[in-house]
């Protein structure tokens, strides 16, 4: 992971910072440079997304990409946050039986890819099921 690329995205990856268009009242995650609905008529502001939401689909990844070997098999889900914005994230610390469509989840802070011994460590959001 190139360091400047990751650094630029800290607000998104650490805090779920995204955009909200004051014209169409829609929230977007991650941030956008222009509102896809209103384009130049849109008025985007930067906001922190709600830290809770619901699973709308999920999978369990058995064949991981590079950097995720020790984590596999792991759960991955698309989550609809409370403001309607959606995010793809890993699900951790949850009873597999509770990982279902509709389950409520809350953001946690974790390491993302496994670091090697020399590079920087990538941190960011994952979610866990809350009862």
């Amino acid at each position: 992971m190139p360091v400047p690329l990751n650094w630029r995205r800290f607000p998104e990856r650490y805090l779920l910072r995204g955009s909200y268009c004051e014209t169409c009242k829609q929230a977007f995650f991650p941030s956008r440079a222009i509102c896809p609905n209103c384009r130049r008529k849109g008025k985007l502001i930067s906001i922190e997304m709600p830290r809770t939401g619901r699973i709308i689909s999920y999978t369990r990844v058995h064949v991981p990409p590079e950097g995720f070997k020790n984590e596999a098999p792991y759960y991955l889900a698309i989550i609809e946050l409370e403001n309607g914005a959606k995010v793809l994230s890993q699900i951790v610390d949850s009873n597999p039986e509770k990982i279902k469509i509709g389950a409520r989840v809350k953001k946690v802070f974790r390491r993302i890819a496994e670091p090697d011994e020399y590079g920087t460590i990538t941190y960011g959001y994952k979610f866990k099921v809350i009862e």
């Binding site: 999978t59 990844v61 984590e71 991955l76 793809l88 994230s89 890993q90 993302i112 990538t122 960011g124």
Partner: peptide, 13 residues
């Protein structure tokens, strides 16, 4: 992809 998504996993979703 940063979060561990793979192509099979996207279609799995």
């Amino acid at each position: 992809l940063f979060h561990g998504a793979t192509f099979p996993s996207l279609y799995a979703l």
